[in-house]
Write a protein that binds this DNA or RNA. Structure first.
Lengths: 218, 218
DNA sequence: CGCGTAGTGTAGCCTACATTACACAAAATT
DNA sequence: AATTTTGTGTAATGTAGGCTACACTACGCG
């Protein structure tokens, strides 16, 4: 089994308890993403993480608590990447392309797709849970991009009268692919374009329509 | 098993058996959409539909079979509406607006949103099921619109070098709203535009970028 | 040491279904 | 009406899995 032999790691111990906690969190996240929340039993999680059922209950109240902890623990890096991109600055058209790349890349990860499935499954049972994820993941990104658009508009580097509307559309263009995948699985790809083409066409559409500065000569 | 239908029924009775079947199908569909496939028990379904558990098993093999029957029975009218629209003809820009309206309208129905949830929940467990829905609902619509775009392109009424790509983008613009709703629930609407604005902006974007004939003067 | 706290492994309780069995009632058929 | 066919109500049956209890172990600290 998991021969813990003589645990010689007494020095750099980042707290015994915390390590167990993270192991369980990771195992649970992996399994939930792979097979769905309902389909995974707590015993399975413990089997993968090591430790015991009792400890799991000690650390997280119950199954729902475990899911909550996963979310609380998870880093939704997208808006941070967007922040970094904005901080780096540049020509609007290029920044837009950068945003598209970030969105499509992040949403292409199987983990993200799996997470979408989990959230969707729980939305009916616990709207509060959906809200937490919504505010932690979706809203921050939307806000960043909306501000960016508003800035461009204010400074005359683009013509975007309704930034929120534009952001919604831009999300539609880029994120729809991953959402289809979450719904239908891999077979959805049969009708879907590869990421690079998506990035190119979506930015072309936007720069053209919203007169975003920096577009190559038509 | 099903006796030969030699017996001529009395009145307009659409077959006793068939009526029970439909009642069960409807009850099941409603409940699945409202609360999710897993969360609904067969007894509940019977309670709503009338009839008995035994009959349910007689008609549909088991719970999965019931779900399958719902799908087989369901009319995915979207592509038919699109066909009708195409048959009606018209200026490309106006037809595009019509397509947008059809898509957004269909995907705004709570039933569609619920169905998306159900499909997504089952995709992991049974990819074949996802495939069936995919081919019955999504693919036909995509194909219709792609042909339409290709026609416009061929006849010089638009410039759409890659119709499939364009269709994907158009779906993204229009359908993303419903998909967000499926994932996050109603609270997603906080960041989402109303349907009319979506229709207007999406068609404006497309007619402008793809030079679709019939756009109002810029 | 030797005690106490935390962690482990496991067995079992308990509930919620899916699925089946069966005894009965209502039609349909003759 | 008698018989056959079909549908109904309800009560098993079996199983999965969340959750709890508990006896046991490892280890830190005096």
């Amino acid at each position: 089994m998991r021969g813990s032999t003589t645990s010689s790691e007494k020095k750099d111990e980042p707290d015994r308890r915390e390590r167990r906690r993270l192991a369980m969190l990771n195992a649970a996240r992996e399994l939930f993403v792979e097979r769905g929340y309902d389909a995974v039993s707590l015993s399975e999680i413990v089997k993968r993480s090591g430790g015991s059922l009792a400890t799991l209950y000690e650390l997280f109240e119950n199954k729902a608590g475990l899911l909550g902890a996963i979310v609380a623990n998870k880093r939704f890096g997208t808006h941070e990447q967007i922040d970094a991109l904005i901080a780096r600055g540049g020509v609007p058209a290029e920044m837009l392309k950068g945003v598209a790349e970030i969105l499509i890349e992040n949403f292409s990860e199987p983990e993200t797709v799996g997470m979408i499935r989990v959230v969707m499954g729980e939305t009916l049972r616990d709207p509060g849970f959906a809200e937490a994820i919504f505010k932690a993941s979706h809203v921050p990104s939307v806000e960043r991009i909306a501000e960016l658009f508003a800035d461009w508009n204010a400074s005359g580097r683009a013509v975007i009268p309704d930034p929120m509307l534009a952001v919604h559309l831009f999300f539609g263009l880029t994120v729809h692919r991953a959402q289809n995948r979450a719904i239908f699985g891999e077979l959805a790809d049969a009708t879907q374009p590869p990421p690079e083409r998506l990035v190119a066409e979506a930015t072309a559409l936007f720069t053209s329509f919203y007169k975003i500065e920096g577009a190559e000569t038509t």
